[in-house]
């Protein structure tokens, strides 16, 4: 067993593309779920709309990358308004059902054969990321960070990604210590009380939905650029579920919670993956128990078990404060 390789891979995963994408998606979800108490189960749709908005604009209509980004952002805002305007006046579980249904509709539409002229169907779209990579200031070569090494494209993607994460966290930090953020947190506790104090609860919930959606949309851009291809199945409901796991892992309603959660989440997955793979090739695990192909399934099971265990034993997240949670009325 090559432990140094296993650890290097885990470290790489902590700063890698998946961590970047899911940290951004979870930062947005944290605004919804952690701060405002909105049950958005369609975060994947915001990623999809952004990723496809960018890809279709650039690949099909040959528009500049910046216009593609604008289209993606606009798409996320419109989606948030469409989802929120009708449902945010209803009971909380309705938002959950409508968002999860909407996310599935979005995925099926992008997947559909009828629209494949624009979306590429289930194969998805490529040939749109060159504009992003052409402004890479780094020359060809390997760039290292301690034991980690990335080529110039990966380094560029990750630099942009982590910059976006930094900016997003700063934005959430500034907003959540402002009176605006105070209203959101109050809505999470009891929206009638907030209403009785003269605040337009509906408007704040909608603002929260838009803000979290736009942050999620950054994750969509990073998915598109990082993989240089957008595929409908990158934006399945499981993406949203993983983001929930990450929010809860890092601790809901904490500024850096989603980032820490994402890093730990992907490091753990990398560790299990690598340890099992190496144990297999070293012959420690026989095929009757686990074939190489089944390692991925063990991963999914671990995510599920982890999410259950967290919610039951440490719902405040790994670093949360249990006392605060004891006050949770929900």
């Amino acid at each position: 067993m090559d432990w140094s390789l296993i650890l290097t891979n885990a470290l790489t995963a902590m700063v890698g593309l998946d961590t970047v994408i899911f940290a951004l998606a979870a930062i947005g979800l944290n605004v919804h779920f952690g701060y405002t108490g909105l049950l958005n189960f369609g975060q994947a749709a915001f990623l999809a709309v952004a990723g496809y908005g960018l890809a279709i604009s650039v690949a099909e209509f040959e528009l500049p990358t910046l216009v593609g980004v604008a289209v993606g952002l606009l798409g996320a805002v419109v989606l948030a308004l469409l989802l929120g305007a009708p449902t945010l006046r209803l009971r909380a579980d309705y938002l959950a059902i409508v968002t999860i249904a909407a996310a599935e509709i979005v995925r099926l539409l992008f997947r559909s054969v009828s629209l494949s002229e624009y979306t590429g169907g289930s194969d998805g779209l490529g040939r749109f990321a060159e504009g992003f990579y052409s402004i890479n200031p780094l020359g060809p070569g390997e760039y290292g960070l301690g034991p980690l090494e990335f080529d110039e494209r990966q380094t560029w993607v990750l630099s942009v990604g982590w910059t976006l994460i930094g900016l997003s966290c700063l934005l959430v930090f500034l907003l959540m210590r402002s009176p605006w953020g105070r209203v959101l947190k109050a809505i999470r506790e009891d929206e009638d009380a907030v209403r009785s104090l003269g605040k337009n609860v509906f408007s704040y919930k909608l603002q929260s939905l838009v803000l979290g959606g736009v942050l999620g949309c950054l994750a969509g851009f990073m998915t598109a650029w990082g993989r240089a291809v957008v595929q409908p199945d990158n934006f399945s409901t499981d993406t949203t579920f993983y983001a929930y796991t990450i929010v809860i892992l890092g601790g809901a309603a904490r500024v850096f919670g989603p980032v820490v959660g994402a890093a730990i989440f992907w490091a753990l997955l990398s560790l299990t993956d690598n340890i099992l793979t190496q144990a297999k090739s070293a012959g420690y695990i026989s095929d009757s128990i686990l074939t190489t192909f089944q390692i991925g399934q063990v991963r999914i099971m671990l995510v599920g078990l982890g999410l259950m265990a967290l919610m039951i034993f440490r719902p405040q997240g790994l670093f949360g404060d249990r006392r605060e949670l004891a006050l949770d009325a929900r």
């Binding site: 947190k185 506790e189 009891d190 009638d192 009380a193 907030v194 605060e324 006050l327 949770d328």
Partner: peptide, 10 residues
Amino acid sequence: FQLTKALSRL
């Protein structure tokens, strides 16, 4: 309100 609505985690 009859049932107080203190915002617990504020």
